[in-house]
Design a protein around this nucleic acid. Structure first.
Lengths: 148, 148
DNA sequence: AAACAATATTTGTATATACAAATGTATGAT
DNA sequence: ATCATACATTTGTATATACAAATATTGTTT
């Protein structure tokens, strides 16, 4: 990836803004690849993320605030995101009996099955995304990202 | 930045998906900082980006397709983005006399002045964003990001 | 020149996301 | 028990973004 070439500029950019532009470009590219991998399943990255969290609960229900807390990208409207998953039959939602303000969300068998297929599709995307990375590069990158 | 802590998971995540989550978290954080820096001026990052491109033109007008080509994040609706800048008086838009399909967009004096203030505000944001980075770290990070 | 295709932008519409106010429920103080 | 407050979610609404179709202009072919 060549920053200057992509944004079609000839003049050199100072290191700090260049890094921010670079991050944005990588983000765009990665997102495109991941959304592409999820496209056949008609779910957004956010929805996929929620399904993964629910699987991680191992049968234990999660409520909306828990989901929101664990999401990679926090969003203001988890209700409507779960609505979509519900409409696809990937989750069940019930009011929490011990505290009726809360809701209990669990992933369905169908949700689990499709999530497995999404994993496979994303695995393929990883191979493309990370084709130029050695294990050591990834470790180094993670270390640098920690500085943010 | 501790990935596992932020998304509140105890189990360790494989290196590749962890990198993608990491990138997303960094992206969120950087975006928040930059949007915060631009908030007093009521412009989005995309709008700021377009203003910078126009300044880079040094008086020479740019048309919509040129802007779109040079934007960090390409978007499907540059017309309405420019509408907003126009409404704020930061740009002028005229039909190109030699080819009336095209439009010519230039940054106004007012736009240039405010853009200068935005630069200062972003400079401060940089200091926060990059506080843990040495010059060498940034160079290394840019090199690794090139692998995408 | 008329017809057709190509180009540049605009508009319509659907979907996504953000933010604030509203709703329903539970908890604690008086 | 009543009231005020806090909590969890939902709803309304505004704004942002995405995609496709529509419009206007130019270039090309016959």
């Amino acid at each position: 990836m060549n920053v200057e070439e992509i944004i079609k500029t000839s003049k050199q950019i100072p290191l700090e803004p260049r890094t921010l532009i670079h991050l944005q470009l990588v983000h765009n590219k990665v997102n495109e690849a991941m959304n592409g991998a999820l496209k056949p399943f008609e779910v957004s990255l956010q929805q996929f993320n929620v399904l993964r969290i629910l699987r991680g609960q191992q049968g234990k229900p999660a409520n909306l605030s828990t989901l929101n807390e664990r999401m990679v990208t926090k969003m203001s409207n988890t209700t409507r995101l779960v609505d979509k998953l519900l409409a696809k039959g990937f989750v069940n939602r019930t009011v929490c009996p011990s505290n009726r303000r809360k809701v209990e969300i669990v992933i369905t068998d169908s949700g689990l099955k499709v999530l497995g297929q999404m994993d496979e599709s994303l695995e393929e995307a990883h191979q493309v995304i990370f084709q130029n990375f050695k294990k050591q590069d990834l470790e180094q990158l993670n270390k640098l990202l920690d500085k943010f």
